[in-house]
């Protein structure tokens, strides 16, 4: 079936089976590889994207449910083509090890900051607890998010524009 959706502000129509997970549409039809496949059951969070402003697990979201929707991926997070403040903080704090989970971590954290510009540490931990990291980068993730909160630059996503 033909499914239309906007990805990072660009309207797209793809020809796929309606039950195809949004993840594989983003990766293989639209060609954005930053959203990762980890478990296929919504358990690890590596595939997290924003659908109509809400974080969703794209590996277990059939694309037909995203029909007409507005999808933001890690590639479209920044509002100005540069690095989003969270991405900047990830670089400054050297967060990634293998890096595979980090798109999902950042997307979860970005959603938090869009709705809460002054989250507590507990808020941050709660927001990213569905995102597994096998390398154990958890403490740097929290530190990086806190640094963005302190700078007050939390709201810089394309979705805020």
């Amino acid at each position: 079936m033909a499914v239309s959706l906007a990805v990072n502000g660009r309207k797209q129509t793809v020809e796929v089976d309606g039950d195809t997970p949004l993840l594989w549409v983003i990766r293989d039809e639209i060609g954005l590889k930053g959203t990762k496949f980890g478990c296929g059951m919504g358990l690890c969070g590596a595939c997290t994207v924003h659908l109509n402003g809400q974080p969703v697990r794209s590996c277990s979201t059939p694309v037909e449910m995203a029909e007409g929707g507005d999808v933001t991926t890690i590639e479209g997070l920044s509002s100005n083509g540069g690095l989003h403040p969270l991405q900047q903080a990830w670089v400054e704090h050297g967060v990634p090890q293998c890096g595979y989970c980090q798109s999902g971590q950042i997307m979860s954290a970005a959603h938090l900051l869009q709705h809460n510009s002054a989250p507590s540490r507990d808020d941050i931990v709660a927001a990213v607890s569905g995102n597994l990291c096998r390398c154990g980068t958890y403490s740097r993730i929290v530190t990086a998010v806190e640094s963005v909160v302190e700078k007050g630059t939390a709201r810089y996503s394309r979705e805020d524009a």
């Binding site: 590889k33 496949f37 990830w90 670089v91 400054e92 050297g94 990634p96 890096g99 798109s103």
Partner: peptide
Amino acid sequence: RGRLDAEAKSTGAPIYGID
């Protein structure tokens, strides 16, 4: 300090086998 691959890994660059 820091890591040379941090930016690629924070921006979703297609650097893994699966990509």
